[in-house]
Write a protein that binds this DNA or RNA. Structure first.
Length: 285
DNA sequence: AGGTGCGCCTGGAGGC
DNA sequence: TGCCTCCAGGCGCACC
């Protein structure tokens, strides 16, 4: 369930907790596979390394180790990081990876990757071969992290990719190769904000609609990151978890309520690609 | 090759 | 209370 804003919040929270260049002093895997097996010699390879950058692309958290390795984390549906100042009080169930750190002040800090459904996964590869990574190479532009490209604004890029596509706009936005980081929730929210029906074919959107939709995507993600940031400011509360945060949705999960945009229509729930979509039956076309 | 649907996995909610 | 069924969905993959 964590989508781009949740991963960004995890990234910021982890960076704030560990600080600059923390050293991995120990690591331990308690089950060999998440969605995929851990990379070979994973714990051996990361132990002794320092985290030199904290990056994110779409829903992937990318930690650079000693400027030469990338530790990739995908949180799947239920993955989260639990952070502690002492090496105890981690949940007994579904804690799959434990990592100990020493920060710049030589304080010991502890992290646990917790994932009940185990849809998450990790990878480890050479930083100079990131373009060949089987996960990263499939990703499109990140709507928040990537620099604005004056020659090819995101709305034009999306419109070009959608040309002649019969897939619905919902399915199109969910394809990580078109735009990285959109999940089920923010798709519904962005389409609601842009007044575009989720069953419209992607190729049928007009140029102004692509502009409206692009603006909606960026604003809905940016606002969610802001909301996540405000909830993470007190993440040192006892649970100390960085994962999925509850936001106030306008469309997602609001079936049968009055639309807050037009105040006339009703939010409806339909199933697309076996996933729930929510839209207003009055103001989304 | 584009479009569609399934399986993976577990906890929680709801029905009886 | 307890058992059962359904639902949540990101991703890779099989299939048409």
């Amino acid at each position: 369930m964590p989508e781009l804003p949740e991963i960004e919040t995890i990234r910021l929270g982890l960076k704030s907790f560990l600080g600059a260049k923390p050293c991995i002093t120990a690591s331990n895997i308690t089950r060999a596979d998440l969605r995929f097996p851990f990379p070979d010699n994973f714990t051996k390879r990361i132990t002794g390394c320092h985290i030199t950058t904290y990056k994110r692309h779409g829903k992937y958290l990318l930690l650079t180790l000693d400027d030469r390795l990338i530790w990739l984390i995908h949180f799947g549906m239920s993955g989260k990081l639990i952070l502690r100042h002492t090496n105890n009080d981690f949940p007994e169930k579904h804690s799959h990876l434990f990592v100990s750190f020493s920060n710049a002040k030589k304080q010991a800090l502890y992290l646990c990757y917790h994932d009940p459904r185990r849809f998450g996964f990790m990878d480890l590869f050479d930083a100079d071969k990131a373009n060949d990574n089987r996960f990263l190479q499939k990703l499109g532009r990140d709507p928040i992290a990537d620099k604005i490209d004056a020659d090819m604004p995101m709305s034009n890029m999306l419109m070009n990719r959608a040309k002649n596509r019969n897939a619905t706009i919902k399915a199109f936005l969910m394809e990580q190769g078109n735009i990285a980081g959109m999940g089920n929730i923010y798709c519904s929210e962005a389409l609601w904000r842009a007044h575009i029906h989720p069953q419209r074919s992607a190729g049928s959107l007009t140029k102004p609609q692509w502009q409206l939709l692009t603006d909606a995507i960026i604003s809905v993600l940016a606002e969610a990151i802001e909301a996540g940031g405000s909830s993470f400011s007190d993440f040192t509360a006892p649970e100390g978890s960085l994962g999925y945060f509850q936001h106030q949705w306008n469309a997602y999960g609001q079936a049968d309520t009055k639309c807050k945009n037009c105040a006339k229509g009703t939010i409806r729930k339909i199933i697309q690609q076996n996933r729930a979509s929510f839209y207003c039956d009055e103001c989304q076309e």
